[in-house]
Design a protein around this nucleic acid. Structure first.
Lengths: 210, 210
DNA sequence: CTTTTTCTGTTGCAAAAACAACAAATTATG
DNA sequence: CATAATTTGTTGTTTTTGCAACAGAAAAAG
């Protein structure tokens, strides 16, 4: 799948062209949005990176998704059950477009550029999200901490076209992303080093196998 | 999200209108398709139900997704890494539409109905897939077998608008879907009954809490 | 209708992961 | 730049999960 969505051009096209779209800027650690039932918000991250975080009743924190530039999020993509709080938190300075999804099919009277471009590119944007979600499911269904770590590292390595890469998370967050205990993960990372699978300096990892 | 995709009407519209689409029928347990890198197949299940199954190197079997009528699948939605075999298996008699996704933007000369309808409804079809995937991630990130089972049962209960519902899986398959050991799951099911959370007769479950 | 196969239900035991607690290092902040 | 806050790294202990093996029930096949 080749997503050729040109976000710069997209923004140029939409600005001042549709009053239903809002662009906002967020500082590091600010809450970008909280998922609310039936609102059907649809967001595009046009700069920075952010996490969708769930806090459950036992106090466990899970990083449900990690968003990079061009990723889409919002209630449109999520059955909000209201049992758990779902927040999108900025990991660094972020710029985000906000829109209510139901309005997408309501044609603008002036047939604005935003709608024209969005309706053309929407499937591509969403498809790239789907492949990310499937990747994540593949990781989560792995049966051991070791397999989760190696699976994740392999993915990053492939994505970076290099055996060496930087973790986009702190180790604490990585554990929350893989849905495992942090100390158990640290133990396994040590074993992976001792067994010669990886090298690790801070958050720089190198794969030594294959 | 309200998906109002009328599959019956869709099929009527497409039949004999686009030579690039194929409809095929499968018997129970037949392999509908095997995921192949870069082919970009795009399928719609128009009748029956089926599973996307992954067999990993340790011999573990995982039910990655469970498809019902109107669900979409194929390589378009999946980064096929070729490490694991990915098969879609019919759980009962199925009818499936096959298409190569890259052709969607290639306009038919005769501007066929299939393309017209598909390009309009594609976002809705895919969005319903995305919400399913997110639901699955929510289940898989739960930290204990108990929470996974209760989360899944709650979802089925909500979907059926009833505290009582039938499992769409055999118990063996349910374990493969939740990515847990079957005997450990059986043990936890017994505890859930003993602790008064559920009632269970065969594959009929009743939630007793809330 | 009988036989074979698959599925369900159980259990003891082994292995893995979670929990808890703390020191050291690093990073933010006034 | 000094201090507070967070993150990393470590380890002993407890709990949970997985594995293996088997008997009985149910379902599929001949």
């Amino acid at each position: 799948m080749n997503v050729n969505f040109d976000i710069e051009n997209f923004i140029k096209n939409f600005e001042n062209s549709c009053h239903r779209v809002q662009k906002k800027t967020f500082a590091k650690n600010e809450v970008i949005t909280s998922y609310i039932e039936k609102r059907n918000q649809f967001c595009i991250l046009i700069e920075g990176n952010a996490d969708l975080v769930r806090y459950d009743l036992n106090g466990n924190r899970t990083i449900v998704e990690h968003f990079l530039k061009n990723d889409v999020f919002g209630e449109v993509f999520y059955m909000v059950t209201t049992n758990n709080e779902l927040l999108v938190e900025a990991r660094e300075k972020c710029e985000v477009l906000f829109y209510i999804y139901d309005d997408i099919h309501t044609k603008c009277k002036n047939s604005c550029k935003f709608h024209q471009v969005l309706s053309e590119d929407l499937p591509e944007l969403i498809l790239s999200k789907v492949t990310n979600l499937n990747m994540r499911i593949e990781l989560l269904t792995k049966r051991s901490i070791r397999d989760k770590l190696l699976g994740y590292f392999t993915m990053l390595s492939t994505r970076n076209l290099s055996k060496t890469f930087l973790l986009p998370f702190s180790l604490t967050d990585l554990a929350d992303f893989l849905s495992i205990d942090r100390s158990a993960m640290m133990r396994e990372l040590k074993l992976l080093r001792e067994d010669g699978f990886i090298e690790k300096n801070g958050n720089r990892i190198t794969l030594l196998y294959k």
